[in-house]
Design a binder for these strands. Structure first.
Lengths: 213, 213
DNA sequence: CTGCATCCGGGCCGATACTG
DNA sequence: CAGTATCGGCCCGGATGCAG
């Protein structure tokens, strides 16, 4: 990308991550390291030459590295993009109430709204395992030691299983739909939905910013 | 911009703000409402047709409105972009240690590092007025009632005046330069620099997220 | 003078084909 | 599997024109 040529942190940051597709590539890598073909699958619509070119420039900028097994992963600095990325997703949340239409969906993308909704540490948060079946592969939401984690796999013995179309699942997670509304949109619930509600950080709780681990 | 066609908050957000120049336009409007010509001046390098086109699409998306006097301003939703924008700037801070080179500079851009460095409310933060003379026009940093504000004007009776080249001023603000290093780079200080240090939020302080006002 | 619109060359994007 | 090559088209960038 051509540099903006401005002595400004925003402009210089956008010189690195402002190109089309770049932040979506980072979204994929935030979940974990990925192979080239996995990135292609997680980024429906991207041209393969563009993906290669973006990975190359992200490598040069120090955001991404390619390890010995040929997998791509974020550098420590690249991991720091989670904050800007979550901030954009949080800001864009109202846009998710528009129907899914012909938009593509991949279940690992659920990690994003979950990270936005259940961010931070709350020691009062109960232990819980939730399996979500929306889209191609199941994902597991797990709450332990006050934090909420998302992984792209099925759960061993989930306390709660949600099944349904992606937009209704996301609407339910984000509070745009209640249990009745979600059911109307084809969501089925196995277990007690209230347990999921209990995962939300309470207003009076102390939010501790996690140190790097 | 062509939509990514992905049911994902990040992708849908980038459908709105992912275009080249768009976030820099928002940066300009975060400081306050601006006329078209003021935007052109604050965005060195932008083509006028691109600015017009971006403003139009931001208007359609509900991020920007044009008021009766022909001035552009952010909607309430548009103001919400401050968080993603600050997050990107915070992430990109290391890039600001590279020399300014041929990069353009406008003093209102100082509002960004100041917002990043002195964000949040700290009741123990002392009252202070600082005038910064870097680039074309002076800006004033003011600390009152625990918060720090930046405005593109000169101060009435500043407690502290910093004068110097933009990169050295930013380096000093961000802690990449100390007093001696900044002096070496041409920064002159009238007043006690320690007072500026006292503005930084103390680690033990309670950070209160401001409610909308 | 402000606030754009038009025009045009060049570069980036997007889709597909192809290769080690 | 992991990209490279190619090419049409659209978007960007810079200059200029022009209406209120």
């Amino acid at each position: 990308m051509k540099s903006y040529g401005q002595f400004c942190a925003l402009a210089r940051g956008l010189d690195v991550i402002g190109d089309r597709w770049t932040l979506l590539i980072v979204r994929e890598l935030l979940v974990g390291s990925r192979r080239y073909s996995e990135l292609v699958d997680g980024l429906p619509g991207i041209a393969t030459n563009l993906l290669a070119e973006r990975l190359r420039s992200l490598d040069e900028a120090g955001v991404v590295v390619r390890d010995t097994e040929g997998r791509y992963r974020l550098t420590e600095w690249g991991q720091g993009l989670s904050e800007p990325l979550y901030a954009i997703a949080r800001w864009a949340a109202p846009l998710m109430s528009a129907p899914i239409g012909d938009d593509a969906f991949r279940s690992p993308w659920l990690a994003l709204p979950v990270a936005v909704i259940f961010s931070g540490v709350d020691p009062r948060r109960p232990r819980l395992t939730v399996e979500i079946r929306a889209g191609d592969t199941p994902v597991t939401i797990e709450s332990r030691s006050g934090r909420v984690w998302v992984e792209p796999r099925s759960a061993q013995s989930p306390d709660l299983v949600l099944t349904g179309p992606p937009d209704a699942i996301v609407g339910l997670l984000m509070g745009a739909l209640d249990a009745a509304g979600a059911a109307q949109h084809g969501v089925t619930v196995e277990g007690d939905l209230q347990e999921l509600e209990n995962l939300r950080t309470q207003p009076g709780s102390v939010e501790v910013v996690p140190v790097d681990e």
